[in-house]
Amino acid sequence: MSQSSSLTSSPVPKGKPSHNLASFMSDYGIVIAFIVLCVVLSVVSPYFLGVNNLLNVLRQVSINGVLAIGMTFVILTRGIDLSVGSVMAFSAMVAASFAGASADYGLILPILLGLGAGLVLGSINGLMVARFAIPPFVMTLGMLSMARGLTYIYSDGMPISSLSSHFLWLGQGMVAGIPVPVLLFATVFIIAWFTLRYTAFGRYVYAIGGNPTASRLSGINVRRITFSVYAISGILCGLAGLMIAARTSAALPQAGVAYELDAIAAVVIGGTSLAGGKGRIIGTLFGVLIIGVINNGLDLLGVSSFYQQLVKGAIIVIAVMLDRSRLTNA
């Protein structure tokens, strides 16, 4: 990284500025949008900037954040995962069934089972998409329904509550004044950022989204990478399931309905292209935060949820519009 400054010394066609306002905006536009939003909200609501409120926002976005990170991997490969909400609900149910206050399974087993349930369903998605070439939209749409069905079958349609206090710590506990779900989200974010930025695997994710044929001809195992991104999304659904069950003190069979839409929205607002190959995890982070801050701010202001929906939708469209104009100017 330290080398990057010396790079521009390679043969340069007459004075092309490597940075200007336009490229700065396209790189950091989302950050600026987020800051503007925060400034506006802190002006109109005196409560917005409070430490507790900011922690609330972070706690509220952490579940969607974890799902959106998995979604980013999938979308970068030109895929989509519509099943995240249902897979999350199923994982939550599986984990909760071993996390009852009366039963003594400890904390490790429910965590492993929850993550495992997500991993298994995600791997099925990955296998069908990578090995049998089922279009991701179709496969995960099917999984959306199948995972929801499994959740009902597994739970008999009834919620599982009375969870052990260890388990609830995952959703309600604090470490050094920071809520545990926020720490989990932050950890996942850092791992994902590092993976996409610095590992060969991350590079391949971008490459197969950018051009699968060229990637295959360059010796990249496209199937394995494709499989992996769905498995990653699945295991993150498992984590989100642990978090939501612990946060709401129950695994509810109807939990997570339509969560895939918020996850996709966060990724898209964050500038990741649905056509694959382009986008950054940091964008997703700010996409998640923007959605969270809008929800929180409008709650604080006492604005009707009808307007909340309207504003959120408008922001998605505007984000994609900006993305488009960036493309055509390139």
């Binding site: 590079r203 060229a214 990637s215 360059s218 190959g277």
Partner: peptide, 15 residues
């Protein structure tokens, strides 16, 4: 089938 068009020179060269 040769290039990842949106990726940089560097990323294509080391692909």
């Amino acid at each position: 089938s040769g290039l990842v068009m949106d990726a940089s020179i560097k990323r294509n060269v080391t692909l």
